[in-house]
Simulated assay, not measured.
Amino acid sequence: MKSIVILISGRGSNMESLLDAVASGAVPVRVAAVLSNRPDAKGLDIAAARDVPTRVIDHKQYASREAFDAAMVEAIDAFAPDLVVLAGFMRILTDGFVCHYEGRLMNIHPSLLPSFPGLHTHQRALEEGVRIHGCTVHFVTPALDHGPIIVQAAVPVLDGDDEDALAARVLAQEHRVYPLAVRWFAEGCLRLIGGRVAVDAEQGGESLLISPAVGAARPG
C-alpha cells in the first residue's frame, strides 16, 4: 500500500475528505502524516483526532524560503511517502522543493486551470462573467498553479451567485475529485507522457471531467 503525506495551512477540508475516503476504503493509501507550516492550523487537531501523526514546521522560524523548504523536505522524507498532497498549503514552493518531488507532488486549485491561477479565483470568475467554473487536480511544477492536469470538475455559475455560494459549490466538487486523483495514483493508473497525464481507462474508469447537471447544483 502506498503512503502519502498531506500538507496543510488551515482547517484542511480537502485533507478531511481524503481522510474520510481512506477510512472508508475508497482510497487505498496510508496517511503517514499531516504537516503544517502554521501551528494554529485547525486541521492538525482533526488529523490528531484520527490518530494521524502531525508535525509543524513554522515558516516564521526560518530566515529564507529555501531554508524553510529544506526543513520541510527533511520532515516529509522522514515518513518516506510515495506521494505528497497539498491540501490548502498556502506557501509558494521553491523550485528545489518541487523538483525533489517531481511526479509525486499533487495539488488542487479552485479554478479550471489554466484560467484564474493564484488567489481570489471565485471573485475573479464572477467579475469576468464566466458561465463555467470549477476545480483542477494537477501535478505540481515550478510554475505557480500550472502542471499536468489529472482531473477537473466543472460547475455552472448561476444567476445571483455571490463568491460564497460559488465557492461552496466548487468545494463540494473538490471533495469528490481529490480523493479520486489520489486513488488513481495509488492504483498505478497515472502516467506522465510529454507533460500530459494519461489515465488508464480500464483501471481509472471515471471521467477526467466531472460535470454535475445544472439542476443538481441549484439550492433547495
Rank of each mutant, 00 (worst) to 15 (best):
R65M: 06
H100D: 06
G88I: 11
F68I: 04
A75N: 05
V84S: 11
A70W: 15
V52N: 03
S64L: 05
I57H: 08
K60Q: 12
T54D: 02
R50E: 07
G88V: 02
V56G: 08
A67Y: 11
V52H: 08
H100C: 14
A49N: 09
A75H: 07
L86Y: 04
V73Y: 14
L86C: 03
Y101F: 06
F79N: 10
A71H: 00
F79V: 08
D82M: 07
A78Q: 09
P81G: 08
A70P: 07
V85C: 13
E102N: 11
Q61R: 14
D69G: 01
I57S: 07
A80Y: 05
L86D: 01
T54G: 02
E102M: 06
A71I: 09
A78R: 09
F89Y: 15
A48R: 14
A67P: 13
H59N: 13
Q61T: 13
R91Q: 10
T54A: 06
H59F: 08
A71E: 03
D77V: 11
D51K: 15
F89V: 13
A49S: 11
V73E: 13
A63W: 11
H59T: 08
A78D: 15
D58V: 10
D58M: 05
A67E: 15
L83C: 09
K60T: 11
K60N: 13
I46S: 06
T94P: 02
F97N: 10
T94E: 00
A75P: 12
A78I: 05
D95K: 05
V85P: 00
M72H: 05
A71V: 09
G96E: 02
A80V: 09
A87Y: 12
M90Q: 02
L83S: 00
K60M: 15
V84C: 06
V85M: 10
T94L: 08
H59S: 09
F68Q: 00
Y101V: 05
Y101Q: 06
S64M: 03
E74M: 12
Q61Y: 03
D82Q: 14
H100V: 15
D51H: 15
E74G: 10
R65V: 08
D51S: 14
P53M: 11
V84M: 01
Q61F: 03
D77Y: 06
D82V: 04
I57M: 14
I76F: 09
L93I: 02
M90W: 00
V56M: 04
D77W: 05
I92M: 09
R55F: 03
M72T: 11
Q61P: 01
A80N: 15
V85Y: 02
K60P: 02
A87F: 09
D69S: 02
R50G: 04
H100G: 10
A63Q: 04
I46K: 12
A67F: 12
A80L: 15
F89P: 04
P53C: 05
E66A: 14
V98I: 10
V98F: 06
G96V: 00
T54E: 03
S64P: 02
V56H: 04
A80I: 13
Y62H: 05
V85E: 05
R50Q: 12
K60E: 12
Q61D: 13
A47G: 09
L86S: 03
D69W: 06
P53V: 00
